[in-house]
Lab assay of single mutants.
Amino acid sequence: MAAGGDHGSPDSYRSPLASRYASPEMCFVFSDRYKFRTWRQLWLWLAEAEQTLGLPITDEQIQEMKSNLENIDFKMAAEEEKRLRHDVMAHVHTFGHCCPKAAGIIHLGATSCYVGDNTDLIILRNALDLLLPKLARVISRLADFAKERASLPTLGFTHFQPAQLTTVGKRCCLWIQDLCMDLQNLKRVRDDLRFRGVKGTTGTQASFLQLFEGDDHKVEQLDKMVTEKAGFKRAFIITGQTYTRKVDIEVLSVLASLGASVHKICTDIRLLANLKEMEEPFEKQQIGSSAMPYKRNPMRSERCCSLARHLMTLVMDPLQTASVQWFERTLDDSANRRICLAEAFLTADTILNTLQNISEGLVVYPKVIERRIRQELPFMATENIIMAMVKAGGSRQDCHEKIRVLSQQAASVVKQEGGDNDLIERIQVDAYFSPIHSQLDHLLDPSSFTGRASQQVQRFLEEEVYPLLKPYESVMKVKAELCL
């Protein structure tokens, strides 16, 4: 049975990233139509530049190519590739079939990587351009969430054990800070992308030097003109047959890092959902379990974690691919890159769409948070109580021993009897502590235990987050809708 299948058929496997999760716009960027249309555009740009620099290419040939950029006979191309065992030459023939007058000058002087690699770089750039505003929107939604809850005390956790208090907004800023680093890295790697350009079979530009009869300047002009037509500021000066596969490492490393950030955020949300302090959106008709109707599973956060793990592992592909590119190139890269580049971007696209949807509907339960604080705060307040007693004339050592005994009794009630923490009640009825009984409410005010959390939130948002989001103001209103 021949390899390949009808990918629109229910009898043929289709990647869930495309069929179930990723956005239509990201799927289109990695589609065959987008790819092969870009090949034709690159052939047109090459012909236009070659004509401008004096090669015998007519206006009629150029116009014929322009008129057929979208006229792609995919069936013919597939048949040609089956016959020739070469995808680029299959599309040269297919393009030439609908451009008979231009057929002889299509791909003039070029090698397969002229269309293959340059198209990949265009796709990487455009895919990054799709991700950047999506990530900015996630940051914006979380920034709104953090600002609104900047002063809401909550129990902090280290080692997932109760620690000092923080605020809900401050905790959210930990998430935002990681995503801001990801946004900066995505922008950097996007701006650092260079075009492969017009380089020939081993990167020496020998074929173009021959076409222009040894004119170095025209060869350099050709490279520059096509690079500018493709919208790049610069091209690699040095290439082998391909652009260095280190570029793929750079791009997928940034995406993998984004995956790590999203995994951490969504894990926190899942843990908070278990504590009943916070939940992701839950639709009115949504079913959490087929057997347990009360369940409210954090399905979206779980999906993000599941896909983020996949995204983090994909960076190993370009690392290994770059390491086995012998001399000017081997074909070890080809099949692998067809999979890992598309999957990385479709996965990143999915987790950003999902995280935006989550961040637009996060639900906080202040009463649950308050109750958990009441359970733990008495123990945390013991040092403040000791200091207040010393100020009232008591002995630190005597007070410490009193607190120690009462704390152990209260802990026994919590752990052995399943009761509430009654340390404060014990202190309130103990005559030894009568000098500070009137101060206990103040000493137990949760806001006095959150330090500068709310001020940190305000400063972080104003100095770091809002300036970073400013270039994306025009796209901030787009909502994230999930079908599944």
Rank of each mutant, 00 (worst) to 15 (best):
E250M: 09
E148A: 09
L69V: 12
C173K: 01
E401H: 14
I287G: 01
R426Q: 06
M380K: 05
I105P: 08
R300C: 14
L155D: 04
F74I: 15
Q161S: 02
H91R: 02
A273Q: 08
E328S: 02
L165A: 02
A291M: 01
E328K: 01
S323A: 12
V247R: 05
C266R: 08
M299K: 04
E50F: 05
E360C: 05
L406Y: 11
E328C: 04
K224E: 15
I287K: 03
I436R: 04
M380S: 03
Y294K: 03
E328M: 03
E25M: 13
Q241D: 00
R20H: 01
Q408T: 12
L443W: 08
V363M: 08
D117T: 00
E283T: 13
F208T: 03
N353C: 13
H310C: 07
T154Q: 12
K199W: 03
S447K: 14
H437G: 07
P153L: 00
A110D: 08
C180L: 12
R141H: 15
V315S: 10
S290T: 10
Q41L: 11
S474A: 14
C399V: 11
T350Y: 12
D59H: 11
A411T: 13
P16M: 12
D248A: 02
A143F: 07
D87C: 00
M299R: 04
W326T: 05
D59R: 09
T111N: 05
G96L: 09
A388L: 07
W175C: 01
A260S: 15
I424G: 12
L482C: 08
A273W: 02
G361T: 11
L55V: 10
R20A: 00
M299C: 07
E417F: 12
S253Y: 08
S112K: 00
M316I: 11
R303D: 05
E79R: 15
L130S: 12
V465Y: 06
Q221R: 12
T330W: 02
F282R: 08
M292K: 00
K367V: 02
D216Q: 09
I249S: 06
P467Y: 08
A90Q: 01
P153R: 01
A230M: 01
G203F: 01
D87M: 00
R459Q: 11
G8K: 15
A77D: 09
V226S: 04
N71L: 10
D191N: 13
R452W: 06
G4N: 15
N384I: 12
K295E: 03
S395E: 05
K101G: 12
E343C: 01
A163S: 12
L482M: 15
T313H: 06
L484P: 03
E360K: 04
G203I: 00
E462A: 14
M76R: 12
L124Q: 11
F157E: 03
L271R: 01
L55I: 14
D11L: 13
I358L: 15
A2G: 07
K479H: 14
L355T: 09
Q177P: 01
T350G: 09
T382E: 08
R426K: 10
